[in-house]
């Protein structure tokens, strides 16, 4: 895994997690797997950054967690989006889209 791939833009990790959790409550491993799958193996999320982010988001009241059984019957901590989290996700996505458009615009014009 190269450094280039591993690096998730600072500040976007929270948004990615929120987005993935928005698809349905899931636990830590599932979140990291889904990010990996959806990004077609571009992002490899390390636990060392995943869990601090999850705890941070939970502390800020954007996520809430409960212990539940997984499909395979084991106990895991499932994260779910709160109302506040959903709102935050919307605003972050909006501003992300505006930013990428703006970046793309500049890159195109500069050609």
């Amino acid at each position: 895994m190269s450094d280039e791939r591993a690096a998730i833009l600072k500040g976007t990790l929270d948004m990615l997690i929120l987005k993935v959790v928005a698809l349905g409550p899931s636990h830590g491993y599932a979140i990291s797997q889904r990010i990996q799958q959806i990004s077609k193996d571009y992002f490899h999320l390390q636990e060392g950054s995943l869990y601090p982010a999850l705890y941070r988001l939970e502390n800020r009241g954007l996520l809430e967690a409960e212990w539940r059984a997984t499909d395979t019957g084991r106990e895991a901590k499932f994260y779910k989006l709160t109302k506040k989290g959903r709102k935050r996700l919307e605003t972050e996505m909006e501003s992300w889209e505006r930013m990428t458009e703006a970046v793309a615009l500049i890159l195109r014009t500069a050609e």
């Binding site: 491993y29 599932a30 997984t70």
Partner: peptide, 9 residues
């Protein structure tokens, strides 16, 4: 607990 469940998953 959470980390253990992660490893098991």
């Amino acid at each position: 607990e959470e980390l253990r469940s992660y490893i098991e998953s």
